[in-house]
Design a protein around this nucleic acid. Structure first.
Lengths: 200, 200
DNA sequence: CTCTCATTTGGTAGTAACTATCAATTAGGA
DNA sequence: TCCTAATTGATAGTTACTACCAAATGAGAG
């Protein structure tokens, strides 16, 4: 590689690939919504997107991946790292969520909501998304560790990350398909409750 | 059904079924350990247990189920409900875990540890187990709600359950295959940290 | 003990998610 | 314009899982 391919206008090739990828995902989500996840075959998705089934698997490693892929993860990471260091781990997290989700376009929100609705109702997908949450433990632990000047393997750091992810999971499960603003408020309340030691 | 089949010496039929079920699971776990989960086919398991592949699926709904099935869940539930009502939700949980896991036979421990090791190393299985954890949120919320005289849908109750499950997940992930006693101690420390509001 | 009936079993055929591979096409640069 | 490398489509296979039917087998009635 003589020059990084991560910038510049991007050749026709790259643009076409991005477009195909987006089209596949769009048709997949549409078909899942219309017929249900299990009832939709990869062949149908490929046909709708006008590619061969072989090509489908070149763009997505699995049928699940069309739903599970989360474009927000890197954005969240960057926002988290940019929080002022004097904030506590939980406070920084709350600020990050407010920042990223607050700055989301209405269409992005709508897509996100549809995705969640789908994932919520299909057991297979729920399992896949939970894997993402588990990966999230690691990510959160990394960020919190750096902020606190501790190791990501530190017991308390990992414990914090686990509890946070648990709270997120629970919030996600409770609010099957509720309103957006409510959801933000709910998360904020949840973290406040967590910081208070979860009194019942 | 003129009389419940849940007691009495149990006919030859029932005994045979239980034996077959156990044999299938035993061979499955053995093969998974020897060759890895993905590399072991259902046909191999069936052959080892001397049944047909069809019959395998009559005993277990999926290949996953041979590993994921958790015989401890009902025991935990009963122990949790038997805790004195003056304990806080978290204290009751800690007591329950100490009780159930403390009273486990060495063989049961060994089996449990092997299962966890397997699940820990196979992504597919991890996803399946996550589903269990999700179900666990509901169970915990139910028990805690009854104890606190609140609804299982109560926001704080669900939040507590989510955080607890998150802590369990994290502890489970951190300690890939450590010693048993250590694991108990670790869990206890984790819950103490949680009750203190997770200070870093 | 024997006959019958419901349950259990094995086999066959099929579907759908992937994987590996190879030949044909196509974009980009010399 | 031609060469090279990336992208694609098609073909053939594997594996988890389902639906179905026919043979075997345990349980109870006579």
């Amino acid at each position: 590689m003589t020059s990084s391919a991560s910038d510049r206008p991007a050749g026709l090739r790259e643009r076409k690939k991005a477009k195909t990828r987006a089209a596949v995902q769009r048709h997949a989500l549409r078909l899942f919504g219309e017929q249900g996840y299990a009832a939709t075959t990869v062949d149908q998705i490929a046909a709708a997107a006008e590619i061969s089934p072989s090509t489908f698997f070149r763009y997505f490693p699995s049928k699940e991946a069309t739903v599970v892929y989360d474009e927000l993860d890197p954005v969240l990471m960057r926002a988290a790292k940019a929080q002022p260091p004097e904030l506590s781990a939980t406070a920084a997290l709350r600020a990050t969520l407010r920042e990223v989700f607050g700055g989301l376009s209405p269409e992005a929100w709508e897509r996100e909501r549809e995705r969640q609705l789908l994932v919520f109702n299909e057991p297979e997908l729920r399992a896949a998304v939970m894997e993402q949450y588990v990966a999230g433990i690691q990510l959160l632990a990394d960020v919190a560790a750096e902020r606190a000047g501790r190791s990501p393997d530190d017991f308390e750091v990992r414990n914090w990350a686990g509890a946070v992810v648990g709270v997120l999971m629970s919030a996600f499960l409770s609010s099957g398909g509720s309103e957006v603003a409510d959801h933000m408020q709910l998360l904020d309340d949840a973290f406040a409750h967590l910081e208070a030691g979860l009194p019942l």
